[in-house]
Design a protein around this nucleic acid. Structure first.
Length: 719
DNA sequence: CGTAGCAGGTTTTTT
DNA sequence: ACCTGCTACG
């Protein structure tokens, strides 16, 4: 294998296959290349069977890519190698043996919405007011318990005040509901795998023996449970290689513990530590910006990335008056860079919060530029998709009451809350599920009509369950939509909304078709499909089309683009006002900024607005401290007027508010060029209000954006 | 049981 | 500004 193109540190990381290895890999230092070559090296040079290799990545997409890249490097068989995310790996392990923990092997996986509904139900059953006790907080507490591997019993024992006791009680109730439903949340996947290993030492031993070489990517973002899992698996051979960058740790809110990577050298014996400090991705100016920003973090191991790539262009800065204008000017800049030869797919717009995407999207749509958005209101969270998947979940696991309650009256079958309550109570008395309770519908005091409807539903579901074993997922989807009357319901509604729902269901079938192409019909099919769906990450949906990518900075982790736009660089938005209380949280925000900057290879654009509307209220916004941490000589401001010339020309005047007549009877329009006594030349970009309080927004080429009282503005029209 | 209309909270990030 | 959940009425 040819390692001559690698630097010394990379080569060392690739060839040190025995014993614990810690690779501290700076942004863009080629860590994915190191990991793929290391795996290829094991297979080819060390003759390690692929069966003995495990590699854990952060997203399914990264896993898929890594496997493809290994396959390209060598001829050896890679089919038995496990490259997957923590969660997908645990699903695979639990699928085999979770019955030993009392769960059904056809367990369901809950998404956040389902989890929230369970907490709400628990609160209801405990007679607690949701307003006084926000369900979200309990969900957080539960997640924290699980990430820290604290059982319900331990939580109760260690609860000292009222709130802790309540958290523990709700945790325990919540867990019982999930157990009854054979349902697992994301955190359970990890925690229960560890519990399984602790309970059944022969199962642990099996995997310890199997996984002789273990790799973990993005190790800085592992939580305690994931840390423990890796630790357990690696105890037999201790051939463990973890890769990460403490400066890119951005998932603390989700339980990630930066100490996992910082303590690695203490946790394992004879650790070989390798530093990758040469950056192959970004031009010098971009790297300088990143280094200058991250240096402001006090609690970090100092390091400085160097690049062998050229100096590059200056960073472009854009200051707009509001988020609408920000969107327009980003679009303008995108078009400019497109003309310079960049593809749309070379460019990504990054923001702190999903809510910021709207203004950017609007601007892109208006200019008919292609874009694809990662995350946000996810496709899989739409009602019709969730309904369909709930049907599939019930077909697979009839005891999944969470899914059952979702579909029992969709389409309407006259089964209301009262009936569901009766069924639920009966299910509890049977110590079973609603599905079983429905079988007794005739004897538990329901109306004849109700019992009949329920019997019909049961028959439909039972038929579907039989059929499901002999058909593709796509066919099963068709059967479900038809047999349950779901499509008929939408067709009958015949509204804009219902039609779009039908389209979405059709769209869903492109996903199922893709799945069907790579999977065999059989008993495992539905389970595999549903767990795949539950574990897709946002990044997995990045298309390959020539389109601008829109996403949160979190979602951009591990990716790179020639051109990066970081928008909304305002105090309170980024850094988020929720993270400004403690130095620790602020430093995590700064790492986020560091991640954002280092995604860029060639061009970086930073953008902010001086006012921003949140909850329908417009507030003025100060420049983000991270912006000022970038040395000014690296930045070049966009000439505002030249940007405006193109941007406003196309805009059609809307209504009378667009026109303003001054005291001397001259009327002004948006887009008019004007001369101001003191500010010089500029252009009117907005006219707000009316009468004496009417204000003009004017962007001046020298003085920048200003808001002036229309009545008194000493301006003249220019042509 | 079902729907329409209103009140209140909500935006930080996600496998 | 938007979404969810509650209430009152048909």
């Amino acid at each position: 294998m040819d390692l001559s193109l690698m630097n010394k540190a990379q080569r060392e990381a690739i060839t040190t296959t025995e014993g614990p290895v810690l690779v501290m890999a700076g942004a863009g230092s080629g860590k994915t290349r190191v990991l793929t070559h290391r795996i290829a090296y094991l297979l080819q040079e060390k003759d390690v069977p692929s069966y003995n290799i495990l590699a854990i990545t952060f997203t399914n997409k990264a896993a898929k890519e890594m496997k493809e890249r290994v396959d390209k490097l060598i001829e050896e068989d890679t089919s038995q190698m496990w490259i997957s995310t923590f969660h997908a790996m645990c699903v695979r392990i639990l699928r085999r043996d979770i019955d030993k923990l009392g769960y059904d092997r056809s367990f369901s996986i809950l998404d956040t919405t389902d989890q929230l509904n369970v907490v709400k139900d628990v609160l209801k059953s405990m007679n607690l007011d949701q307003k006084q006790y926000p369900p979200r907080q309990f969900l957080n507490a539960i997640s924290n318990f699980k990430n820290a591997l604290i059982t319900e019993k331990e939580a109760k024992e260690n609860a000292y005040d009222f709130r802790e006791k309540l958290n523990a009680d709700i945790y325990s109730e919540y867990q019982e509901v999930l157990y009854r439903n054979s349902a697992l949340d994301f955190d359970d996947l990890i925690m229960l795998t560890i519990q399984l290993f602790e309970k059944e030492s022969d199962i642990l031993n099996y995997y310890q023996t199997k996984f002789q070489y273990i790799h973990v990517d993005e190790y800085q973002d592992t939580n305690h449970a994931q840390y423990k899992l890796v630790y357990m698996l690696s105890q037999k051979y201790e051939n463990i290689c973890v890769v990460g960058d403490s400066d890119q740790s951005i998932y603390k809110f989700r339980g990630a513990d930066i100490m996992n990577i910082l303590n690695f050298e203490e946790d394992y014996d004879n650790v070989k530590t390798i530093l990758l400090e040469e950056n192959y991705r970004s031009h010098q100016r971009i790297l300088d910006a990143a280094n200058n920003v991250i240096e402001n973090n006090m609690s970090r191991v100092p390091k400085n990335l160097v690049t062998s790539r050229g100096k590059g262009e200056k960073i472009i800065s854009i200051v707009s008056q509001n988020e609408r204008e920000e969107g327009q000017r980003i679009v303008k800049q995108i078009q400019k860079l497109k003309n310079e030869g960049y593809n749309f797919s070379d460019m990504a717009v990054l923001y702190r919060a999903n809510s910021q995407s709207r203004a950017i999207e609007d601007a892109l749509v208006k200019s008919s530029l292609p874009y694809n958005m990662v995350g946000g209101m996810k496709f899989y969270q739409r009602k019709e998709i969730k309904d369909l998947m709930s049907y599939m979940k019930v077909v697979l696991n009839v005891h999944d009451d969470i899914a059952m309650e979702r579909i029992i009256n969709t389409p309407k079958r006259g089964i209301g809350p009262k009936t569901i309550d009766t069924l639920r109570n009966h299910a509890r008395s049977l110590d079973s599920s609603i599905y079983d309770a429905i079988k007794d519908a005739d004897f538990i005091g329901l109306s004849k009509k109700n019992a009949e409807n329920l019997a019909n539903l049961l028959e439909v579901l039972e038929n579907l369950k039989e059929k499901s074993k002999f058909m593709t997922i796509t066919d099963l989807v068709d059967e479900i939509l038809h047999d349950t009357g779901y499509v008929d319901m939408l067709i009958r509604e015949n509204t804009l909304e219902s039609n779009s729902r039908i389209e979405n269901l059709e769209e869903f079938k492109t996903v199922t078709k893709e799945f069907d192409e790579t999977h065999e019909i059989g008993d495992e099919l539905l389970f595999d499909f549903l767990s795949d769906m539950a574990l897709v990450s946002d990044q997995d949906n990045v298309d390959d089309l020539d389109a601008v990518t829109l996403m949160t900075i979190h979602a951009s982790k591990g990716l790179e683009f020639k051109v990066i736009f970081i928008v909304g660089l305002e105090e309170g938005l980024f850094p988020s006002f929720r993270s400004m209380d403690t130095e620790e949280e602020l430093e995590e925000e700064r790492r986020l900024m560091y991640v954002a900057i280092t995604r860029a290879m060639e061009r970086l654009v930073i953008s902010r607005a001086t006012t921003r509307t949140i909850f329908g209220k417009t507030n003025s916004a100060m420049e983000s401290q991270f912006w000022s941490e970038i040395p000014a000589d690296l930045i070049e401001g966009e000439d505002l007027i030249s940007v405006y010339n193109g941007a406003t020309k196309k805009r059609k005047p809307r209504a009378k508010s667009q026109v303003f007549t001054n005291n001397s009877g001259v009327s002004f329009n948006i887009g008019d060029k004007v001369t101001h006594q003191t500010f010089g030349d500029g252009m009117i970009t907005a006219i707000n209000g009316s009468g004496d309080s009417e204000e003009l927004d004017i962007v001046f080429s020298k003085a920048g954006p200003k808001r002036l009282l229309a009545k008194f503005a000493p301006i003249e029209k220019k042509d």
